[in-house]
Each structure stands twice: as C-alpha cells, then as structure tokens.
Computed example of a mutant assay.
Amino acid sequence: MANRKVLRRARKVLGEEPVALVWCEIHRPIPTPPKDVHRAAGKGRLTSRHHWLWYVGAVVFFFVFVPMFLIDRLGRKPDRSPAGRGGGRTGQSPAPPDAGPSPLGRTPEGERGKGPGAGVFDGDWSLTAGQLLLRWYSQSPNPKRLVLLGRDRVCVAASPRRQLSPTRADDFRTVAEFGLDQARIEGEAGQPRGYATFRLRFADGSWLEVGRLAEPEDADHFLRAVSG
C-alpha cells in the first residue's frame, strides 16, 4: 500500500484527500500513429526508456553469449544416420495440408490486436484518449502512471524517474486533469490479480485502457470505488 509520503503528495496534487489512487501502465504496445499525427504532437517517445543496466545486459548477451553459442554449435559434428538418406520413411506421416482461413471466422493469434487501437484505445488519434497517449512518455520515461480519483475530478500523474517503486515514489506531478463531466473511470471490482484493467472514458467518446495495477490493496480499493 502507498506510504504516507505518497499519500501526502497525492493530497497536495489534488488539494484534497484522494478517494482512491492506483499506479498503472499501458499493458499493450502503443500502436504506431500516422506520421503526420505523430509529428504534430512533437514526435514524442512511444516506448519507455530502459535502465542503463538493461543495455549493458544486451551488449553482453550479443557480444559474449551469442558468439560462444555459435562456436559451440559449429564445433559439434552433425549426427547423420543412414536412415536419414531416404530409407526408413515408411512410418512417417505426410505433412499436414495448409489449414487455410480460420474456421467460424476466428482471428488467428498472430493477427489479434492489430486494429486501429489494438485494444489500447478507441483508435482516433485526434480525440482526447489518442492525444493523451501521444504524450504518455513526454513527461516521464517510466511507463507507470498514477491515477488519482478526487470527489469531482480524475487526475493522471507521473514521476520523472526512470525506475520507481510504486509504494515510495512521492515526486509525481500532474500530466492531465479532467472534471467528472469530462472523464469517468470504468472498472469492475474483484478482477483476477495480475489481469485487472480499467478504462478512462472521455466525454468525446474516446477511451484508454490501462492495466498492470500495482499494489493489491490500492488496486482493490480503487476498483471498488469506481465500480460502486
């Protein structure tokens, strides 16, 4: 659960005691916007920035482990048996035919989530959700955002840190603020832990879905507050 410093900062940001709060993330990759839309929004980042240790690990993997693996594979002699040259094929079953299109109109796994909004938002970059999504990483390289619910407003805040602990990050600042006539939160209480999501739905009809809710107590309290 968020500690006293986080709650104190939340009260300062909102100017009142928060009804509920929760750290969350965009739980799917942000779709690629049209180039002109992205350019008009300042061509901000659409992915988070990794910690420097991540880049060190990637370099070590590609320049140490990959060469060692290739040398090991090349040093092994191929195991070829006589049966592999045409004999011993009597027990083999023929290759399965091309499955063709999915039955009953089902979407293949590799094609899911490729619509205009890919399950992240409604797909219209010109509306509130799309514009907020274009600015998601502009004020913080970290994907986590704190959603604060007040008596008459919804506030989205972010910490400038690259790495943060949701229970102790008390340096967040407002990214966007909406009155309850401009935005509302849609969520269901009792969702399975680790899979819980909720939506920010705006007055212009656009919506943005987030997940990866941090801190079970905060998440459960938040979902109960918005579903009541």
Rank of each mutant, 00 (worst) to 15 (best):
L7Q: 14
R39H: 11
G123I: 01
R162L: 14
T107Y: 04
R199N: 11
E188Y: 07
G187Y: 05
L53S: 13
I30V: 14
Q131H: 09
A203Q: 15
G115Y: 06
H50I: 06
E186A: 10
R49K: 14
G194K: 07
V226Y: 00
L7R: 12
L70K: 13
S206K: 04
W54L: 04
L149Y: 02
D170M: 08
P34A: 03
Y195A: 15
D124K: 04
S81A: 13
M1F: 06
Q191S: 01
A196K: 01
R89C: 02
S140T: 12
Q191L: 09
G190V: 04
L70W: 14
V19H: 05
R168M: 01
D218F: 04
V210P: 05
V60F: 11
A219I: 01
S165P: 00
I26Y: 02
V64A: 09
G75F: 11
N142L: 02
G84I: 02
G228T: 00
F198C: 08
G117M: 09
G119R: 00
R184S: 13
G150C: 10
P67M: 09
V156H: 01
M1Q: 00
L223W: 12
S159L: 04
L208F: 08
P166I: 00
P101M: 10
W136N: 03
P34I: 05
F178A: 04
A225N: 03
E186R: 07
L180F: 10
G105F: 02
L223F: 12
P78E: 13
W136L: 08
R201M: 08
R39F: 13
A158S: 03
W52P: 15
K144F: 01
S102V: 03
V37M: 11
R9H: 05
P78T: 10
S138R: 15
H27D: 14
E25D: 03
G84Y: 05
K144T: 06
P97E: 08
I185K: 10
G179V: 02
N142T: 10
V64W: 06
S165I: 00
A10R: 05
V156E: 04
Y195I: 11
G44S: 11
R8T: 15
M68L: 15
G119A: 01
R212Y: 10
P160C: 05
D124S: 09
R151I: 04
G44N: 14
R45D: 15
G228I: 00
L21T: 01
G228K: 09
A40T: 06
E17S: 14
T197I: 00
W136G: 12
R153K: 15
T197R: 06
R106I: 13
L104N: 14
A40H: 00
L14F: 08
D170P: 08
R135P: 09
D98G: 12
W23A: 01
R153G: 08
G91V: 08
S102K: 09
H27F: 14
G44W: 11
A2L: 08
V37D: 12
A99S: 12
V147C: 00
V175G: 01
H51P: 09
R168T: 13
